[in-house]
């Protein structure tokens, strides 16, 4: 799986927003917060994403599933602003946007939890939560406000972090996950992208994270949940988008889809017959 390396990415060509060769982008689905239209991304000779289109709606958990190498993390990076697509458009509330960096994405209300969590292990929980968004008081960091808000956030997530002043390197995998999710929720983003949030977790913590995802949906966030553990996702997803070899292999309604259908779509053993081919 390719890791985001935004520093090595070249500046986007001005044509990348509406490439001459690309088909005219379709309009966004009405009601969608975020829409992707014809997104492609190459890494050298490797085509990680090819003509991917999908819509994310508020109050909805969109699960993106796919086997290893299907382009899931690249998709997360594109939505979170860590990668710039080579072709295609991102539409926020129907208006095209360019996400130049994770900071830009965040300021537009798109927050991401990356697969490796992107926490600084030498900083403590509070420092990580507020990194680059610290509240200040007379020019100096307002540690009291930060620490209080940190406890509040972590309390909402029902967490077991022993102290918010512990360096992140001393936390367990599940606790780190909670810290990363809590950081994404600061500033009340409209779209939350979770890339493989359960991959490193045990059974109980997985259940906690899935609970958390449902709570995000209840609060009105649009959640993009990316995983290859299709079984976990079935408990919380409203819709599935199946990625296979960088392309959208199918879009499935969670209410009617079975585990075998998902596996079939992920592996390409057979197309999900008659349900909703794209």
């Amino acid at each position: 799986m390719t890791r985001p390396q935004p520093h090595s990415q070249p500046e986007p060509r001005s044509g990348s927003r509406s490439g001459a060769a690309a088909p005219p982008p379709a309009a966004a689905l009405p009601g969608a917060v975020l829409s992707l239209r014809g997104i492609s991304k190459n890494f050298g000779g490797v085509r990680a994403l090819s003509d991917v289109s999908l819509d994310v709606r508020p109050h909805e958990v969109l699960a993106v599933v796919g086997d290893n190498g299907a382009g899931k993390s690249t998709l997360a990076g594109v939505i979170a602003g860590a990668y710039r697509p080579d072709a295609g458009q991102l539409l926020l509330d129907g208006r095209p946007v360019v996400l130049g960096s994770p900071a830009v994405a965040r300021s537009l209300g798109i927050a991401a939890v990356f697969q490796d969590l992107a926490l600084c292990h030498n900083l403590d929980v509070v420092e990580n939560l507020f990194l680059a968004h610290e509240p200040t008081r007379g020019g100096f960091l307002d540690e009291v406000a930060m620490e209080r808000k940190a406890w509040e956030l972590l309390g909402q997530l029902g967490t077991s972090v022993p102290s918010v002043r512990l360096p992140v390197r001393e936390l367990s995998g599940g606790q780190r996950q909670v810290v990363a999710v809590a950081r994404a929720l600061l500033g009340s983003p409209r779209v939350v992208v979770l890339d493989e949030p359960t991959a490193a977790l045990g059974i109980r913590q997985t259940a906690e994270v899935l609970n958390l995802v449902e709570r995000l949906r209840e609060r009105g966030h649009a959640v993009v949940l990316i995983s290859h553990q299709a079984a976990d996702l079935q408990a919380v997803a409203d819709r599935f988008v199946v990625l296979r070899l960088g392309r959208v292999g199918g879009e499935l309604d969670a209410a009617s889809v079975g585990y075998e259908d998902l596996l079939a779509a992920m592996t390409g053993a057979s197309r999900p017959g008659g349900r909703k081919p794209r």
């Binding site: 390396q5 935004p6 600084c120």
Partner: peptide
């Protein structure tokens, strides 16, 4: 501590 994480956090 972690250049990439700092960048992703918006530093």
């Amino acid at each position: 501590g972690d250049r990439r994480s700092a960048m992703l956090a918006g530093v």
